[in-house]
């Protein structure tokens, strides 16, 4: 028990003393996740909106695949990205394996379906409300797409936050394609896994607290956006 208490105390002091190693790991984690979520948003929101609004052959299967991909096992994604980026893989010449870029690619693959599927639902709901009015004004579904994305921006931001939550909490894929190399590809989740296996609980706990704080902040932010939207709707 005393060991845990000591580790907890050390963890707190690591956080408040802004330990350089801890700061670097947190910084890289945020960099990888923010880049991945930005790319996934650019890909996922229009993809979700297209599936919601446009009628094209294979739309049904695309919807099923998008929903199924929301639960993609990270280790499988890690394995696939590993195979593609490894020296003998199709993109091996770029030498991206065990770099933050590889981690970003893996996270983009994991997060894009989440953002796309949630965006599809948001845009579909909004279209049900707007369709008659926008069609009456002369907007085709394609022309209505940017309008609906703009009007659904708060709801879509919640989808993006859900994607960010998934990205920051992910460990399997980034471990496989990043390699958990000290000062290069070591992020919060992979460090926690490593430090626990080494028995160094202080750093693991400190990172756990930071990770938990990020998750709580994301949750609070999503709730705040929801509350503001509801207040505006009531006004």
């Amino acid at each position: 028990m005393s060991e845990i208490t000591t580790a907890f105390g050390t963890a707190i002091s690591l956080i408040f003393s802004i330990n350089s190693e801890l700061a670097q790991i947190v910084g890289l984690s945020l960099y990888v996740s923010i880049c991945a979520v930005l790319i996934a948003t650019i890909l996922g929101v229009p993809l979700g909106a297209s599936v919601a609004l446009l009628r094209f052959p294979g739309r049904g299967p695309v919807q099923v695949i998008l929903n199924a991909l929301m639960g993609l096992p990270p280790v499988v994604v890690g394995l696939i990205v590993y195979l593609i980026l490894s020296r003998s893989g199709p993109l091996g010449v770029f030498g991206l394996l065990y770099t933050p870029t590889a981690m970003i690619i893996a996270q983009v693959i994991l997060v894009t379906p989440i953002i796309a599927a949630l965006s599809r639902q948001v845009i579909e709901d909004l279209w049900a409300e707007y369709a008659e009015q926008l069609t009456s004004l002369g907007a085709s579904p394609l022309r209505a797409m940017p309008t609906l994305i703009m009007d659904g921006r708060f709801r879509l931001f919640t989808a993006v936050l859900a994607g960010f939550g998934r990205a920051t909490a992910e460990v399997g894929a980034v471990m496989m394609v990043g390699g958990n190399i000290d000062h290069v590809t070591r992020v919060m989740t992979t460090t926690i896994a490593l430090e626990v296996s080494k028995g160094d609980l202080a750093l693991a706990l400190a990172l756990g607290i930071v990770l938990l704080s990020i998750s709580i902040t994301i949750g609070a932010l999503a709730q705040l956006i929801k509350d503001r939207r509801q207040m505006k709707g009531r006004a």
Partner: peptide, 13 residues
């Protein structure tokens, strides 16, 4: 031609 609905939909702007 134009149409006005019973419950008009206003864009968030």
């Amino acid at each position: 031609q134009a149409m006005v609905f019973q419950r008009p939909v206003m864009l968030r702007r």
